[in-house]
Structure formats: C-alpha cells, structure tokens
C-alpha cells in the first residue's frame, strides 16, 4: 500500500472517492504488491491496460505472449516468487467433440510455465458447472494429459473443503460465498476462460468464468443457487469478492452462436490479457462486435471492478478495432440488443 500513497489524488473529496474505489478495483492485487506503479496509477485514474495478441496458435510460443501481456498490463514478476497462483480454466461441460467449448490445455500450460518461471507455486483448479465427474471433464478436455506432462497439480473445486467469504459486491441477496480453500488461500487467481457467446448473458469471458470457483457440492450442478440470486448480480459479486484475479483469455479458437455449450467454432487467433478482468472482458466484447455496457454484469462492474469504456482502456499489443469480427448470436431480443454500434467494426 506504500506505493498507493505516493500516487497524487487531488482534493480531499476525490481522494476519499478514489480510496473507496480502490477497495474494489485492483485492491487485492495492489495490497499484495503485485502491481507496478504504472498500474496503480491507472487504478487511481480509473483506467486500465489490456493486452491483445494476434496470430496466436496452440502450437506457438504462447508462454512468451503470456509473459509479455502480463508485464505490459502491470504485473510485477519479481513479487511472484513463492506466491500461490491458482489457474482457473473453463471446463464447464467438456466434450472431445467440441474442443472450442473449453480452455485449450496449451494455453493453461503456457500460463503455468510463465508463472513458474517467475518462481510462483502454480496449481490448476476448476469446478465444472454441468458435470460431477471431474475426472471425465479432465479427460474429455485433454487437460489431464497436459497436467501429467507438465507435472501440474489439479484441485477439484467442486468438492474441496470450503471457507466462507463475505459478499463484497452486494448486488445479489447472497450474504457471502462458500469458496474452496485453494481459492481463498491463493495469492493470485488467473481466470483462464474461453472467448464465447453466452445464450443468457451475451458473453462469457474472465468474469463469468469465475462461476467455476463456486463448489458444486454446495451450490449444485448447475450452480442453481447463483441463478436464482441473479446471474449478472452473482457474476459481479463473485468477482468483487475475489479481488486478486488477473485474466488470460483463450481467444484462439472461440465459440459463437448458441454458446457457451452448443455454439460453433470461430477462429480468432487471439490472446487477451490483463490485470483488470472487467476491462479485459469489455475488450473481449468489442472484439466480438458486442457493446460491453449492454452486458448487464459488465455494466454493473463499470468503474467499480474496473473501467469498461474504450477511452479508459489503454490497448497494449494490438488495437481491438483492427481485429474485431462480429460473432453470431442467437436472434433473440435479449441478445441482439448487445450488438455494438453498426459500422463500428472494421471487418
């Protein structure tokens, strides 16, 4: 927090506002000393950086891209030595017939290697939302083989012992969440989603992916307690309650149409990386031709969990405008209203 205090905040009123804001946006990462001074300044200036890399392939040098992206968006590698880092991929309902539904094992291993190289203690954890047999999920997704090859430990977040964490978001009626111990005890969580459309909330990326930190043994399969409390509200609340999270989005082979399970393959060749998941997801929306402020949970997250306005997000790597390609969405009013301004896309 020392570095926080060196940032100029202006008058007394704005200082109070900024301090209050900092409780949510990036507060966990800042308190853990994992952010660069530049990233701290961004928090106070209500901005964030997001790194977009194109021409990415699962057999390419992904680890280098991940390292570059995380450093460019404010992570301080020197602070990661000895820290417990939990990688949270999306394995909602894996099927070897639909590899574009789940985070590719190559991306997971690349992120793991990047953090290991920085001296972190890395594990992978997931609580698949639709299936109880996690061994099956690991085999169908191809992740088990990758975990074995890379000697990476896996934690089954659906069944692990839990700890109660107060709801810091207060958007839903839930007082708090039971999170698996590995989630609560992690110094840093890396949300590793697949870039997909979602037939209820429009888009699923790093924030919605955090549903998989919620244990099925307590919330069910599907995690219906969250649905009844409101999907956008609980997406917001879970992310507000887990502030030490960064994002690496697998946007190489993506899903469009009837996502997050039944959609079609759309190849984009992208990795989207950042230390502020809300800003990362806003950029993902723009890349998909959707307006982030119309995605309810992102709208709620705006300037509370991070900036989502384009002018407040500094693009590192590639500009999203040159890479955006409209994703197909179902022709339903709650989804078509998410379309961005016509003509904004360049391709």
């Amino acid at each position: 927090m020392e570095r926080n205090q060196s940032v100029s905040t202006g008058g007394a009123g704005s200082e109070m506002l900024l301090h209050r804001r900092a409780l949510l946006v990036g507060s966990g990462l800042a308190a853990a000393g994992l952010l660069s001074v530049a990233a701290l300044r961004e928090i106070y200036a209500l901005t964030a950086s997001v790194f977009v890399a194109r021409h990415q392939r699962y057999d390419g040098p992904l680890e280098t891209t991940v390292r570059d992206g995380l450093i460019a968006t404010g992570l301080v590698p020197a602070e990661l030595r000895g820290k417990r880092v939990l990688l949270k991929p999306n394995l909602v309902e894996p099927s070897r017939l639909v590899p574009h539904m789940t985070t590719h094992p190559a991306v997971i291993v690349a992120v793991a290697e990047a953090f290991r190289r920085w001296g972190a203690i890395v594990s992978v954890g997931e609580g698949p939302g639709h299936v109880r047999d996690t061994e099956m999920a690991l085999l169908e997704s191809g992740l088990q083989q990758a975990l074995d090859s890379a000697a990476l430990p896996f934690v089954d977040l659906n069944y692990e012992d839990v700890a109660w964490v107060k709801n810091r978001g207060h958007a839903s009626p839930l007082d708090g969440f039971f999170f698996p111990r590995s989630v609560v005890e992690a110094d840093l969580i890396v949300s590793l989603p697949k870039m997909k459309t979602h037939h209820w909330v429009g888009v699923t990326a790093s924030m919605k992916n955090m549903y998989g930190t919620i244990p099925g043994v307590k919330y069910g399969w599907p995690k219906n307690v969250l649905h009844h409390a409101g999907i956008p509200e609980t997406v917001f609340d879970i992310n507000a309650s887990l502030p030490k999270t960064v994002a690496v989005v697998d946007g190489i082979d993506c899903m469009e149409g009837d996502g997050p399970i039944m959609g079609s393959l759309k190849s984009m060749g992208l990795l989207v990386i950042g230390t502020v998941p809300a800003a990362v997801d806003a950029t993902v929306c723009r890349l998909m031709g959707l307006e982030p402020s119309r995605v309810t949970y992102l709208n709620r997250a705006a300037n509370r969990l991070g900036p989502i306005e384009d002018r407040r997000i500094e693009q590192r790597g590639e500009r999203w405008t040159s890479l955006a390609r409209e994703f197909q969405i179902l022709d339903l009013p709650h989804l078509t209203r998410l379309r961005g301004t016509p003509g904004l896309l360049t391709s």
Binding site: E93, S95, H130, V131, R132, D133, M136, H199, W221, P222, D258, I261, M262, L330, L332
Partner: peptide, 19 residues
C-alpha cells in the same frame, strides 16, 4: 440425460453418463 435440461432455446443439449 444431463444435469436436467433437455432443450434450451430450441436446441437439444448433450447427455452425460453420471446423470
């Protein structure tokens, strides 16, 4: 069967072994 949805928005979902 899967966890318990048959079709959603007109599309039949996938079955899973455990349920």
């Amino acid at each position: 069967l899967n966890y318990g949805n048959t079709t959603v928005l007109g599309q039949e979902l996938r079955p899973h072994v455990v349920p």
